[in-house]
Amino acid sequence: MVIDETRTTNTTLSLDQRVKMEWKKTYDFFISFHRNAFKPEIGTGAEVYVYKTANVKSKSLAAKIQNALVRVGFRDRGVKEAEYYVLKHTKAPALLLEVGFIDNSADNKLYDAKFEAIVDGIANAVLDVVGVKKNNSCPTCGQKVGI
């Protein structure tokens, strides 16, 4: 299992640059992490987007991640279809996560307080969908995977 980040500093990459980075390797999934925004204190909750022609594996992962985000306390905004650039143009099945609203103080408190649970929920959903058991070895690369 290959895991890469498109950016590790606060430097903006265009959507096209992100997609072109993904084209250079083979991935099980491309997952784009975001914090949503609307009007201060109005929007709340988490949602996961998949491309309109997403396969069953993508939809399954989207549902598992959405359920994990709801379990930590985010309002359920559901799994939705969209034609966002990164969803449409990556080779790997792609998901776009909106993990709470950055302009909502309750969502921010939840995000900060439950960050480890959020990360674990997302990671466990990915591991489950690709068939890797926690604290086991990756079936593709043989590396130890533990959360």
Rank of each mutant, 00 (worst) to 15 (best):
P93S: 12
A123G: 09
K52S: 15
G100P: 12
R75D: 07
T26Q: 13
D128K: 10
N108G: 03
A46D: 03
V79P: 09
A68M: 05
I42K: 14
T44A: 13
E81C: 01
Y49A: 04
D107F: 06
V99Y: 02
L97V: 13
G45A: 07
R71L: 09
G45W: 08
D120W: 02
R35L: 12
A46S: 15
F101R: 03
E98Q: 10
F74M: 07
E41D: 14
Y27G: 07
A125F: 11
K24A: 15
A54N: 04
G121V: 04
L110H: 02
G121D: 05
A94T: 01
L61Y: 03
D112A: 15
A92P: 05
T90G: 05
R71A: 15
D103P: 02
T90V: 08
D128Y: 08
L127M: 15
K20I: 03
N36A: 08
L95M: 11
K91E: 06
F101W: 10
K57F: 00
K25R: 15
T44H: 13
G73D: 10
K24H: 04
D76Y: 13
V86D: 05
K24N: 15
K39D: 11
T26P: 00
A63R: 12
L95F: 12
I102A: 15
I65T: 06
M21Y: 11
A92C: 10
G100K: 08
L87A: 06
K25E: 15
T90W: 00
F38C: 07
D76H: 11
R77G: 01
R77D: 01
K64E: 14
T44E: 14
S105Q: 09
A106Y: 10
M21S: 11
A94F: 04
S60H: 07
E22W: 00
I42T: 13
E41P: 01
R75P: 01
E22Y: 00
N55W: 04
N108Q: 14
F38I: 05
L95D: 06
G43I: 04
D107I: 08
M21C: 00
E81L: 05
W23F: 11
A54S: 13
I31H: 04
G73F: 12
N67S: 15
D120E: 09
E22M: 04
A37I: 08
F29L: 09
F29V: 05
F30Q: 01
A113V: 03
V48I: 11
A117T: 01
D103W: 02
K114A: 07
F30A: 06
V79Q: 02
V50E: 08
P93N: 05
A123P: 00
E22A: 13
V99L: 10
W23Y: 14
F33N: 12
A62H: 11
S105H: 14
H89G: 01
G43E: 06
E41K: 01
V70D: 02
I31N: 02
T90K: 03
F74E: 01
Y111E: 06
K109W: 09
V119I: 13
F38H: 12
K25G: 07
L110P: 06
V99T: 14
F115N: 14
Y84H: 07
G100S: 07
I31G: 03
F33M: 04
K57C: 05
K25I: 02
D120T: 09
E98S: 10
T53K: 14
D107T: 09
Y84G: 03
S60V: 13
